[in-house]
Design a protein around this nucleic acid. Structure first.
Length: 205
DNA sequence: GGGAATACCCCTTGGCAAAC
DNA sequence: GTTTGCCAAGGGGTATTCCC
């Protein structure tokens, strides 16, 4: 057990860089002046403490578990700060193009990796275009649905690696630290996941 | 100032070993 | 046999230093 050899305080101090990394990646995506970076770090530390208390080593590595808990705590905190009722926020969400862009950015990034060609740019441009029309909207929805299905075929570990690399925009080194493996291993998982995704995607299209 | 050389970082890939 | 993971080597991009 992780806690048997180290005190809670030692584990928290040891994982503080991880908290700062996660807080930083979220902080970069929040409009300037909305929240203080230190507040996010403090919230992340609360998540880290909860992770230490509830960690079950049989289920996953501590760093992976802590990552999920820390990020969840910060996101919960941000939701609580939202002054708008959830139903109003949902209505806004439905018509907020930035939100849509955020959701599909993951797929765009992966697609870029998968196809690595000029055609990708055209699709990307279609997806992120500021002009919404029925045709581009339909293409976007179909592509998102297909990729979503393909990603669902991957293992949890592969999905996590892709999420950390493309959604959180972490580098391989950071992902390696979170997963507790080497950078080269993360690169291999990423390459394998993308290859698998490409194969799955081909069968779906 | 700017071009060349060097150092450094990030990442990928191949080979290998251990575990399942 | 397959999967997982590490190590070492090398490619590519960027930053820094040096010299003209």
């Amino acid at each position: 057990m992780y806690r048997r050899t180290k005190t809670k305080k030692e584990i928290v101090l040891e994982n503080l860089p991880l908290v700062k990394k996660i807080a930083g990646s979220i902080y970069r995506r929040i409009p300037e002046g909305i929240i203080d970076f230190d507040e996010l770090v403090n919230t992340g530390v609360i998540g880290l403490i909860k992770a230490v208390e509830n960690y079950n080593e049989k289920k996953s590595s501590f760093s992976t578990y802590a990552y999920i808990k820390i990020r969840g705590e910060i996101l919960d905190y941000l939701r609580k700060l939202d002054p708008l009722p959830r139903n109003i926020r949902n209505k806004i969400k439905k018509s907020d193009w930035n939100e849509i862009k955020d959701e599909v950015s993951f797929f765009i990034s992966i697609e870029r990796e998968l196809f690595n060609g000029s055609d990708t740019l055209k699709i990307k441009d279609t997806l992120v275009s500021s002009v919404i029309n029925p045709e581009t909207d339909l293409i976007k929805k179909e592509l998102t649905a297909l990729l979503s299905r393909a990603i669902g075929e991957l293992s949890e570990r592969e999905q996590l690696v892709l999420q950390l690399l493309f959604v959180e925009e972490l580098d391989l080194k950071s992902v390696a630290e979170i997963l507790g493996v080497t950078v080269s291993r993360v690169s291999q998982i990423k390459a394998g996941a993308l290859k698998k995704l490409k194969d799955i995607f081909k069968t779906l299209v």
